[in-house]
Every structure is written in structure tokens, then in C-alpha cells.
């Protein structure tokens, strides 16, 4: 408890200084950027800055931080969704992977659809607000078998997940977002947009960091997050601030039940319990269905 309270106290001092730095005029609407409070217009740029600076070392860092577990989560997420055009169906599915920069979910979904259902017609749109992350994804795409197909099925586009101006209403069947939605300035707007672009019967699936429910495990996890991660960011990616932001944004993200409520508020039907905790709730899968 001591370690955390001391580090939180010192950060509060640091935070107080930064608030002044970011909020020049007091009458603007503000939101949180990690533990800092910033103007709403600024958050988008700040998040862009974080991901531009981590784009290249993104996967190495993910592996180091989660000790490889993020690969298991993603694989479970894809299996859980079990999406793909079933044999005998007359219409291929349209996938949309938002904040899917590096494309691991996107290619994973297509691989699953082909391996399990022999689906080689469904299309994939990878959208990300950050052009640097998207470029990283396109480089990887070049190395997959999908790049060699005569008819291109994968498409990359720079899109703000809250607006999605290039994606028409009722045009997608599966909307996935893995470790992206907590960076949205307005999460509810992002969910409403997801509802807008999905067809009836379409499914919204979100994999995101969440809150550990067991207090003892949570204590250890918090200590790990706040003490180890920024240091690893410094040592491996030479970028302490970006990883400090990641840690704080994980803390700020709504709890499972609260986020489930937001999904329902956007209009989705939430089946069963509504979410599935992974590794004590470090991450959680949320599902919503547009009816």
C-alpha cells in the first residue's frame, strides 16, 4: 500500500503542474488523458502522438509487458467470435477492425474464417486514426497471403472511430476493436458509431483492459502496472511518457459492468453476462448484438 500511495502522491504533484500546462482557458470542455485533464480537442492529437512514437516497437513492447499473454487473449477473442461465412451461405461477411493498426486481429479473423469455414470471400476493413500505425499494418499485410490474392479483400483507411465518415450505415457484419476503445475521446460516441455501421444481426466485439476484481491480485497487478511498465517502456522503447500514458489510460477505463451499460446504451443487445474476464479481469471481452 505504501509504495502505491507514495507514487500516486508524487504523481498528483506532477499532474497538477500539467493540468495548468494543458488548460489555458477554463471554459473549454475537458477529458482525461491518462491521469491528466486536457481539452477535448487535444486528446486526439495526444493519443496520436503516443501511438506514432510506439508504432515500431509496439509488438515487442506488448510481448514484454504482458509476458506474451496478449497473444493468448487475442487468439481466444478470435475463437470466441468464431466469425466467418458458413458453407452454403450466399453472402460473404464484411469485417471492420477498428484501431486495428498492426492488423493482428484482422488477419487472425480472416485466417480463422478460412481454416474453419473455408471462407475465402469475406472482406476486411482495417481502420485506425493513426497513419503511422496503419502503415505498420500495411507493411505486415504485404507479407501475408492476402496481399497475393487477385481480388483484394483487405482495405486500410485512416478513420476516426467516433465518426467513421467513410463507412456507410448498416454496412458491416462484425465490428472488432482490440485494445483501442480506451483511447477514444468520447467512448460513447465510438459505441454509437459502431451501432450505426453494423447491419442488423451484426456483432460488436471489444477486447480491452479491464479491472481486476480480486483485491489481492489487483494490488499486485497495480504495483506491476505503475512500477514496472513505465520503466520497461524506458528501457525497451526509450519512451517513458507514452507508457506512462498507457498505464494511466488502463486505470481510467470504465469497469466491466459500467462499460456493459454503455454498450447497452448505444442500442446493442448484450447476451448472457455480457462480458468475459480474461486473466482475473486484466482484460475483458465485451459483446453486443445489433438486432
Amino acid at each position: 500500500m505504501n509504495v502505491r500511495s507514495i507514487s500516486l502522491a508524487s504523481r498528483n504533484v506532477w499532474k497538477a503542474r500539467n493540468i495548468r500546462f494543458y488548460s489555458q482557458s477554463n471554459n473549454k470542455e475537458t477529458t482525461h488523458f491518462g491521469f491528466k485533464t486536457v481539452d477535448k480537442e487535444q486528446k486526439e492529437d495526444l493519443v496520436k502522438g503516443v501511438f506514432s512514437s510506439v508504432a515500431l516497437s509496439y509488438d515487442v513492447m506488448n510481448d514484454a509487458m504482458s509476458m506474451g499473454v496478449h497473444r493468448l487473449w487475442k487468439s481466444h477473442f478470435i475463437n470466441r467470435l468464431d466469425a466467418g461465412m458458413r458453407p452454403g451461405s450466399d453472402r460473404p461477411l464484411d469485417f471492420l477492425d477498428v484501431a486495428g493498426g498492426t492488423g493482428d486481429i484482422a488477419f487472425g479473423l480472416l485466417d480463422h474464417a478460412e481454416a474453419k469455414f473455408g471462407d475465402i470471400r469475406s472482406t476486411m476493413t482495417v481502420a485506425d486514426i493513426n497513419a503511422d500505425m496503419l502503415r505498420e499494418g500495411e507493411v505486415r499485410y504485404g507479407k501475408t497471403k492476402y496481399a497475393k490474392e487477385p481480388k483484394q479483400r483487405v482495405e486500410f483507411m485512416v478513420q476516426n472511430g467516433e465518426i467513421m465518415d467513410k463507412i456507410p450505415d448498416n454496412s458491416k457484419d462484425v465490428y472488432t476493436i482490440a485494445f483501442g476503445i480506451r483511447n477514444f475521446t468520447n467512448i460513447q460516441a465510438g459505441l454509437n458509431t459502431a451501432y450505426r455501421v453494423l447491419r442488423p444481426g451484426g456483432i460488436f466485439a471489444c477486447l480491452e483492459f479491464s479491472q481486476v476484481e480480486n483485491p489481492l491480485v489487483d494490488y499486485i497487478y497495480q504495483a506491476y502496472l505503475f512500477l514496472m511498465l513505465p520503466m520497461m517502456g524506458q528501457l525497451i522503447a526509450n519512451d517513458r511518457d507514452s507508457y506512462q500514458y498507457l498505464v494511466e489510460s488502463i486505470r481510467k477505463f470504465p469497469k466491466q459492468e459500467e462499460f456493459k451499460g454503455m454498450i447497452e446504451k448505444a442500442g446493442f443487445y448484450v447476451p448472457d453476462q455480457g462480458y468475459e474476464n480474461l486473466t482475473f479481469g486484466v482484460a475483458a471481452i465485451h459483446i453486443g448484438v445489433k438486432l
Partner: peptide, 14 residues
């Protein structure tokens, strides 16, 4: 007449 993707509603996945 829903799309195949709706099967994702079941938590048992695979």
C-alpha cells in the same frame, strides 16, 4: 435471415 456473424452471440465460441 440474419447474417452468419450472429453466431458470435454464444459465449461458448468454438
Amino acid at each position: 435471415s440474419y447474417p452468419d456473424s450472429l453466431s458470435g452471440v454464444f459465449s461458448s465460441g468454438n
